[in-house]
Structures are given as structure tokens and as C-alpha cells.
Design a protein around this nucleic acid. Structure first.
Length: 498
RNA sequence: GGCGCCGUGGCCAAGUGGUAAGGCAGAGGUUUGCAAAACCUCCAUUCACCAGUUCGAAUCUGGUCGGCGCCUCCA
């Protein structure tokens, strides 16, 4: 495989070559756990999940670290509001985050380090920076001396002198007064009086926002590792500051590749907690199959903005998410194909070696090639569509008394589904469970009772047996009006909700 | 003010120098007692606009218009 990735550091696509060809070391900036994950967090996690899947699916071992920031000012603030212990609150939202990320098909990271478990590493790193002149203590705080790091700005491609001096107006005056220079940032913040604090060589306090990622990546991946990822909004200042801290301490490049995903947008505006225009992942899962949330996230390139729309009624209540509904129909299409393939009767499968259709035989290579090109999700989805169509075509051929499905085609189709899972994390679940889950969720939303539908179906079956097609069609009409669709087959009638 | 991104059919969205992927919607067909599902066929001489480079540009350069992001907590 030759994976090419856009590197924020160099502003161009580069071939991904881990320093150790046998093991790619990847660090992903995980959540600050003070609230539920929203759609944007899910998107970001899905991007890096597919990066890891793609590498592994093509023979590269990966050590994937996703941190949890469980000590932070926002957590402290929220815990005061809730009257809950900060550590308890963090633990609660960490568990929720893990649950929500698994629900969209993301594989757990290999290591999930917490700030609370790395305070000693943080102290040591700060001390190194003080010792070599990169940082200084000031009134119980410790700040990074930005002017001392000549490469500052190399990731975000900006020069300090270009910065609007806006930050000074928005940071507490007391903090500004302690700093040598306004662009300096805190490595350690002395205890402000309220809230919990941790002891340190510089007194009671808490770590600054950026230092934890430097300390934890160093602890688990070493001074230099292969790739560091996160959302586009982390480029500055978070990742820029991480580079400054880590490289000022070690004198080595922190990471070779820096990858950043684009945002979910609402009305062309970034979805964010501060704007309040977000949907939590878990509230969306109630309305739509989580795998459809994943599919939706694959409909556009990972660096491009992904706009979310919804429809509302006269009172402004949300009535639907057209994009999720479309994605959910694609997920149904996927699982229906998977189910049909599994349902081909053994006697229809014949050991003939007819030439394998390209859409079946070439699918694994084409899927990998699409992802090799800077993880082109839409291209990958296009390949998946061609593959699924070929699977349906195969199952059509196998139908009926004279149907035949060449064994090699069936094997290729099964392999294709394995690759879809390995590369994209799609189609990983049990088909019936997903399909019935989708149907029941929609039925519940429309207030449709399964027992009522089943009774109608029985009534119609009797009418059909009696050749009373007028009566049978009348029943179908009633169900259609309710939003129920019937699918007749030799095995009987099943129903779905449109 | 600085740095950066984007503008492709009714909608969503790839493609970034070689003559417009894919999905949704729409039209017709095969199939079906009728349907649905599935499959097949059709659906952008054209890529915001203008000028230029080139044998050749949606793709490169310059400009215009429009939209957005970061510079402050943020995936």
C-alpha cells in the first residue's frame, strides 16, 4: 500500500512512511470529558478510526493512542455547577464517550491515557522546560516562553507578529500581568482559590491545557512518533503549543505527519458547544441507526466541511434529518445485500469458475486504492456501491429453480464484505438485528404497533389464499397509508416502515 | 488586519493537466396477481465569473464576485 495523506505541517499530500515500517505510532487528541460527545466528535473519531483500520487492513501494525483529558478548567466549572465531584463527572462522561464512539463502529484505541494518571510526567516535562530556559515560573504559574522557540508557528503557518493582539483582551488581566510576553501560554496554573487542585513543585494548581498531550504522547509513543491527529480547530493554538513544548524539551520533531479533520456545520456555521448548535451523538442514535451516522460521515472528504440539515414543523420541532434518512436507506441496502448473499441456498451455489465480475473481484483493491489517496471516503463509498450492486446481481442470478451462483463469485462477495468491515467499519453487525432495529425505530416514531401490522398481514394472507385480491389490496392500502410497506416473497411477507 | 479553505447537474458529492466517479431525486423497462425490493437503460459539451499559460484546464497563474474557518474554549 502507498497511503498518501495531507500533512498540515507541510501543506501538501505526502506518502505515509512510519519511522518503524512495522509499527505506525499514532496519537489522537481525544475529548475533554465534561459533556456528551456531539456529532463533530463522532466525525473526528470516525476519521481516525478509518485511518487505523486502513493501515491495519493492509498490513501495517498500529499503536493508536487516544487520550482523555480528565483534568481541565471546563470540567471543574461544570462540576461546580452540578455539585458533582470533578473526578466523578469526568469518569461519567468518559464512559459515555466510549459508549458513543463504539456505537458508530469505532474500534477502541490501544491506549487511552488520562491526565490524572500522568501528573508526574507533566511535572517532569515542565521542569525540563524550566531548566533549559523554555519556561519560567511566575507567581505560582509556569509559562512557556514562546520567543525562545524559534519554530513557533510552523504548523499553523503564521508568524507571531501577525497575530491580532486580541487574546490579551480576553485573558484574565491577572494572568497577563504575570507573563513576560502576551503570546506565552500556561504550563501550570496556580490555584485560583476555588475548585480542586493538585500539588506540584510550584505549589498547588492544575496543568495548563496543552501540556498533557505532550506529556502523554511522550510517555506512550516516545519523543518522536509518526502521526498526530485531531480537529482543524486544534491546529492553533493546541497543536502548535504541543510542538513547542515537546520539541523545546527533546530537541526532536514531535510528529512527522499532522492530520486534521474538517467540521460538521449547521447553516454553514461550525457546530460547536460554544455556539450551542450541536446535537449529541446519543440523541441522534435515538432517531437514526448509528451506522447511518457513520455512513453520513463518509459522504464527504474528511477535510471538507460537512453540512447538516434538518426539517421542522410549524412549531419549530425537528421532524427529520434528510441526510441521515438517506444514509439509513443506504445502510439498509447494504444489510439487505449482505442478508441476501447469506440466504443463497447451498444447492444454488455451483463450483463453476465463470469469469469473476470486475465489481466483485477488483473491489478489495479498488477500496484500498480509494483510501490510499488521502482517505477519500466518497471514492470508497462509490466503490462500495458498485460492489453491493454486484452482490445483488449475484443473488438475482441465484434466484428461482434454475438459479446458479458460481462458488468463486460467492467467495469474492463474502471477502468483499470482510474488506468493507476491515477498511471502513461498515456492515460489521448482524443484518437482521440492524434491519429490524431500523424498522422498529421508525415504527415507534410513527406510533405503529407491530401486533396491529402482523394482524393485517395475516388477514391479507388469508385473502390472497382465497384469491380475493381486491380484499388483499385493500389491506395493503391501509398499511401503506400508515407508512407500512409489505414485501412478499416465496417465504412469506415481511414488513418495513418507509 | 494576518493565515487558510471553498464555490461541480434539482439536492449531496468525488475528480486537481488529458477530455465530468458515486449516491439521492426523476423518466422508462425487467420482475410481481398488485406492489415492494432488486436489476437494466436514460438523466452536466460542462465544472461561480473574467483574463492568461498550454497541443490540451473543472484541474495551473492573475483578477472579480460569493461563502466559510483559524487567530479565544472548541473534534
Amino acid at each position: 500500500m502507498t497511503l498518501r495523506l495531507y500533512n498540515t505541517l507541510t501543506s501538501q499530500k505526502e506518502t505515509f512512511e512510519p519511522a518503524d515500517p512495522d509499527l505506525a505510532r499514532i496519537y489522537y487528541c481525544g475529548p475533554t470529558v465534561y459533556d456528551y460527545a456531539h456529532l463533530g466528535h463522532a466525525r473526528s473519531a470516525i476519521v481516525y478510526d478509518i485511518l487505523v483500520r486502513h493501515l491495519r487492513a493492509n498490513g501495517t501494525k498500529v499503536l493508536f493512542v487516544r487520550n482523555v483529558t480528565d483534568i481541565d478548567d471546563k470540567i471543574i466549572k461544570r462540576s461546580v455547577e452540578n455539585g458533582e465531584e470533578p473526578a466523578e463527572l469526568a469518569k461519567r462522561f468518559e464512559a459515555a464517550y466510549q459508549e458513543d464512539m463504539r456505537a458508530v463502529g469505532n474500534i477502541d484505541p490501544d491506549i487511552e491515557p488520562r491526565v490524572s494518571e500522568h501528573l508526574t510526567d507533566i511535572h517532569k516535562l515542565i521542569q525540563r522546560l524550566i531548566d533549559n530556559g523554555s519556561a519560567y515560573e511566575a507567581g505560582g504559574d509556569v509559562y512557556f516562553r514562546v520567543k525562545s522557540f524559534k519554530d513557533y508557528g510552523k504548523l499553523s503557518h503564521r508568524k507571531m507578529e501577525d497575530h491580532q493582539s486580541g487574546a490579551s483582551g480576553r485573558t484574565a488581566d491577572t494572568e497577563q500581568a504575570k507573563k513576560e510576553s502576551p503570546e506565552d501560554f500556561a504550563l501550570w496554573k496556580g490555584n485560583a482559590g476555588d475548585g480542586p487542585s493538585w500539588s506540584s513543585p510550584w505549589g498547588e494548581g492544575r496543568p495548563g491545557w496543552h501540556i498533557e498531550c505532550s506529556a502523554m504522547s511522550m510517555a506512550h509513543l516516545g519523543d518522536s512518533f509518526d502521526l498526530h491527529g485531531g480537529g482543524l480547530d486544534l491546529v492553533f493554538p493546541h497543536h502548535e503549543n504541543e510542538i513547542a513544548q515537546s520539541e523545546a524539551a527533546t530537541g526532536k520533531p514531535m510528529a512527522k505527519y499532522w492530520m486534521h479533520n474538517g467540521f460538521i456545520e449547521v447553516n454553514k456555521e461550525k457546530m460547536s458547544k460554544s455556539l450551542g448548535n450541536f446535537f449529541t451523538a446519543r440523541e441522534l442514535y435515538k432517531r437514526v441507526e448509528p451506522e447511518a451516522v457513520r455512513w453520513f460521515n463518509l459522504t464527504c472528504h474528511y477535510r471538507a466541511p460537512l453540512n447538516l440539515d434538518w426539517t421542522v414543523d410549524e412549531e419549530g420541532n425537528i421532524t427529520g434529518f434528510p441526510q441521515f434518512e438517506e444514509a439509513e436507506r443506504r445502510v439498509e441496502y447494504l444489510y439487505n445485500a449482505k442478508k441476501r448473499l447469506a440466504d443463497i441456498p447451498a444447492k444454488r451455489i455451483v463450483p463453476r469458475d465463470d469469469a469473476l465480475p470486475e465489481e466483485l473481484g477488483e473491489f478489495p483493491a479498488k477500496l484500498a486504492a480509494a483510501l490510499d489517496e488521502d482517505l477519500s471516503f466518497p471514492a470508497a463509498l462509490a466503490e462500495a456501491s458498485a460492489f453491493l450492486k454486484a452482490v445483488n446481481d449475484l443473488t438475482e442470478k441465484a434466484k428461482g429453480k434454475k438459479g446458479k451462483a458460481p462458488l468463486s463469485w460467492v467467495e469474492a462477495a463474502n471477502l468483499g464484505f470482510e474488506r468493507l468491515d476491515a477498511e471502513l467499519g461498515l456492515g460489521t453487525k448482524d443484518a437482521d438485528a440492524v434491519l429490524l432495529g431500523i424498522r422498529d425505530r421508525r415504527a415507534a416514531a410513527k406510533g405503529i404497533e407491530a401486533a396491529t401490522v402482523e394482524a393485517k398481514i395475516a388477514e391479507r394472507a388469508q385473502a390472497r389464499a382465497d384469491k380475493d385480491f381486491e380484499r388483499a389490496d385493500a389491506v395493503r392500502g391501509e398499511l401503506t397509508a400508515m407508512g407500512v410497506e409489505l414485501l412478499d416473497s416465496p417465504e412469506g411477507t415481511v414488513w418495513t416502515v418507509s
